Computed example of a mutant assay.
Amino acid sequence: MSDENYYKLINIFKSVPGLNIPFSAGLALGALFNGDTEMFKRSGEIDPVLIFNPLKCLGNLRKHIMAFFRDYSDGIWIGKKACGNQIFGLTFSPGFDLYQYAILIDGNCYCLKSANNYKVEIKITKDSNEIQLYTWYPSSKQNQRLNTTLKEYARSMESFSYSILPLGKNQINSQLFCNLMLAFASKITPMKAAFEMTTTVGTFLI
């Protein structure tokens, strides 16, 4: 089984109500025992909302089963992971949650990172190890741009400054970055892209 399908299966089992917590804990303990810190974070990561909302689990389960039959190299995917070295995030809605986001477009992963003095850095990679750090949700939108055009657009956002809550001019965070990339790639408005991200990733209710 490929690493991609292995992680997709992990996502499926972590979305089964009642199974998600013990399954994640078991994987995390196994990874910790083997000294695999990256796997510990990836497998042990959980949204506390899933503990109290089985409907959220079922919504994720449906999305991850659909994702199993799609390839990361095809189409647009929205990814998220807990910030920093944490294993807990909290979902309200994309743009209002405690996660780091990335976007995968036809096999290229675009992620925004903050450096010193709130400087923005854009990383573009096909590295499967980097890609597998995120939990990916398939978008219904398709890419309408050339890869070179997408890369140029992504790099242009390095002129922005990083802010956890980007309310000012030329401020950005990972959620807003993914929103703008999705809008640009699929040739839709940022408002429509925000709605697409919400239906793709979900809220704390679904």
Rank of each mutant, 00 (worst) to 15 (best):
L182H: 08
Q100T: 14
E152P: 09
L176T: 09
G84K: 00
N173R: 01
L180E: 04
N20G: 08
K169A: 14
K80T: 02
S128G: 02
Q142H: 01
Y153V: 09
C111I: 13
P166H: 11
L50V: 00
A194H: 10
G95V: 06
C178H: 03
K151L: 10
L9P: 04
L165R: 06
S128W: 05
T148D: 11
N20V: 00
Y118A: 12
T91R: 13
R62A: 13
I76T: 01
S174I: 05
I164K: 10
N170Y: 10
G79C: 03
S140I: 08
K113G: 09
P190Q: 08
F177N: 02
N147H: 15
N11M: 04
R70G: 09
L112N: 04
M157V: 15
V16C: 04
E152S: 13
F92Q: 02
S174K: 00
G107L: 06
G59M: 06
Y153Q: 15
G26T: 12
S128A: 03
Q171W: 13
Q171R: 13
E121C: 07
R155S: 14
M181Q: 05
C57P: 05
Y101I: 00
M39L: 15
F195C: 06
L112I: 04
A193F: 02
C57G: 01
E158P: 12
M181W: 07
L150M: 14
F177E: 06
K81T: 03
K41W: 03
R155N: 14
N108F: 06
G26E: 09
L55F: 15
I105N: 04
M197E: 05
N60G: 13
R145W: 07
K63N: 03
L50K: 15
G30W: 11
A115R: 15
D106T: 04
N129M: 01
Y99A: 05
N117R: 12
K8E: 10
L32F: 11
A102G: 11
L27M: 07
K41F: 00
A67Y: 08
K80V: 05
L9F: 15
W136C: 10
D97K: 02
D127R: 12
E121W: 12
F69R: 11
K113F: 05
K113S: 10
S140F: 09
I206G: 13
I46P: 01
L104I: 11
M181G: 03
S156V: 07
I105T: 03
S174F: 11
G35P: 01
L133E: 11
S159K: 15
N5E: 07
N173T: 08
F96R: 01
G18D: 06
S156P: 13
T37H: 04
L29H: 06
